[in-house]
């Protein structure tokens, strides 16, 4: 029981460290962008956390068969994931700003289509969680691998560590979206607020993307 609680606590400590700050800001803006739909924000946050947890569990289980490869895998992830995430965030940012158009079939924005787009956004939250977890920071590498070694690959410990790393982000996104939603309804301008929230998310993605690229190339 103590090991399980400790895994969640170490996850929370990881999340509030300075190192994952940039990816946390991007995640909060992405999760909280649908300010008019609190349940959507919450579901999106839970899926983001599930994505993180999934990554740590999959990696942990895979490495539990080959503990001696931990140094090489950790080094590779810490050195190379920024090359993947940086450009990807920039492209996603430009797509959200409608500068790059996705070549999707033309739909009128019927309720059904809107539902499809929303589901795509939820899938995006899951993938974003997985991707950001894969961008190991020194602090996440320290706590995740020590958890993995001490628990000898206990799936529950690994999954709970992942949940811990997502919790502060989700809590912050939900509170932020709730406040923004209240504010927008006071001004009766929810649609306008959502449009700006989407643009802000896009700009944050582009800035964070360039930050990651700059960090590995400069």
């Amino acid at each position: 029981m103590i090991a399980l609680l400790s895994a969640v606590w170490l996850g929370i400590l990881t999340s509030i460290s300075p190192c994952p700050l940039a990816s946390n800001i991007a995640a909060v803006s992405f999760i909280g962008r649908k300010i008019a739909k609190p349940y959507y924000v919450l579901l999106s946050g839970l899926l983001y956390t599930a994505g993180r947890s999934l990554f740590y569990t999959v990696l942990g289980v895979a490495l539990s068969f080959s503990m001696q490869s931990i140094p090489a895998v950790s080094d590779w992830l810490q050195s190379n994931m920024a090359y993947v995430a940086g450009p990807l965030l920039i492209v996603l940012g430009f797509i959200m700003l409608d500068i790059f158009k996705l070549n999707l079939p033309k739909f009128s924005l019927s309720e059904r289509t809107q539902g499809k787009m929303d589901r795509l956004g939820l899938l995006g939250a899951l993938i974003l969680g997985f991707l950001f977890a894969a961008m190991l920071c020194p602090v996440s590498a320290a706590f995740f691998f020590s958890n993995l070694i001490q628990s000898e690959g206990n799936v529950l410990v690994l999954a709970l560590y992942g949940i811990g790393t997502g919790l502060p982000v989700v809590a912050f996104a939900v509170v932020l979206a709730f406040c923004a939603g209240k504010l927008s309804s006071v001004y009766n301008a929810t649609k306008t607020f959502e449009k700006y929230a989407r643009r802000i998310t896009a700009i944050i993605f582009i800035i964070v993307g360039f930050y990651y690229i700059g960090r590995v190339f400069v």
């Binding site: 001696q68 931990i70 140094p71 090489a72 950790s74 080094d75 810490q78 020194p138 602090v139 590498a141 320290a142 691998f145």
Partner: peptide
């Protein structure tokens, strides 16, 4: 990295 099984700083 290998000598001391390092996975982080």
């Amino acid at each position: 990295l290998k000598d001391y099984s390092l996975y982080t700083k």
